[in-house]
Design a protein around this nucleic acid. Structure first.
Ligand SMILES: [Zn+2]
Ligand SMILES: [Zn+2]
Ligand SMILES: [Zn+2]
Ligand SMILES: [Zn+2]
Lengths: 144, 144
DNA sequence: TCACGTTGCGTAATGTCATAACGTCACCCC
DNA sequence: GGGGTGACGTTATGACATTACGCAACGTGA
């Protein structure tokens, strides 16, 4: 799929521009996430990495840690899973902050928005450093 | 604390009105959550239950399942923890849907809002059945 | 060129979170 | 009193994640 290749190339540029090293292992994990096109469990990534060297949990968790810190991937908290960031990192709009995820429970597809707006009804004086926003339901294809 | 007693009484009424049985075990777990005043881990609840009978994981997870289904408690997904619902269940405003949580990372205090509004930028045709919204940061007391 | 700090990753062990599966008892309804 | 249901005890296991240690590669300055 050309989209996947494009996303990996964009990630490559994204990292070189920022002095981050997208090592083969990290690139491979990102590739698996992109190919999956939705949330993937860490141990499933682990299984996918196996045929090519017996990988252990820390291997994949270290890669995921790098990718999520860099903004190239997101953890889906309510699923204990991980998904590739869908925002174009080659554009002038890096996904530095929190993402708002729309996850279809039927087909597993994920859509993503940047969290630009702050909550209108936050407690007085509350300073937000990180937000987790995940919406579950049916995408337009799966809604009957 | 009178607030805690009030919340438990309100939960009692809430359950009787709906034909739900707030058993001693469930009430005890809710009591622990209310007393904690913030997110509590399942195994910490387990430890707190021990002196009075050796409790096993399924015991506390069943109680939490009941409480969360009833809307009397919420799971804090990003912390793998659970917190008592702060909305007054004796009022005409049950916390049936999703809650928006503001969690102070310094003092552990939790504030809660009902999720009334839908996202303005959801994908076309996406039908939301459940939302997870958790904001992390500093409450007004802890912000320096 | 060599010592030294840093980074990435292999490996083993462990820790943390959650559920499956089965049995028992109390209760309600007919 | 037979049968269904719901709540909970108990044992075991599964699923998710981290700690700790070691080593090899790399850059940097002496
Ligand atoms: Zn993103
Ligand atoms: Zn779908
Ligand atoms: Zn609530
Ligand atoms: Zn605080």
């Amino acid at each position: 799929m050309s989209t996947a290749i494009h996303m990996l190339d964009a990630a490559e540029r994204f990292c070189t521009e920022r002095g981050l090293s997208l090592t083969p292992m990290r690139r491979r994990v990102l590739e698996l996430l992109v190919e999956a096109g939705g949330p993937v469990k860490a141990y499933d990534l682990l299984s996918a990495l196996k045929p090519g060297g017996a990988a252990q949990p820390p291997t994949v968790y270290r890669a995921l840690d790098f990718l999520t810190r860099a903004g190239l991937a997101h953890k889906v908290e309510a699923l204990n899973a991980y998904t590739a960031c869908l925002n174009g990192h080659d554009e002038d709009d890096p996904c530095t902050g929190s993402a708002e995820l729309f996850i279809c429970e039927s087909c597993g597809n994920v859509d993503e928005r940047h969290m630009h707006r702050a909550p209108t009804d936050a407690p007085e004086g509350f300073v937000i450093t990180r937000s987790v926003v995940e919406h579950y339901g049916q995408c337009v294809r799966c809604a009957n």
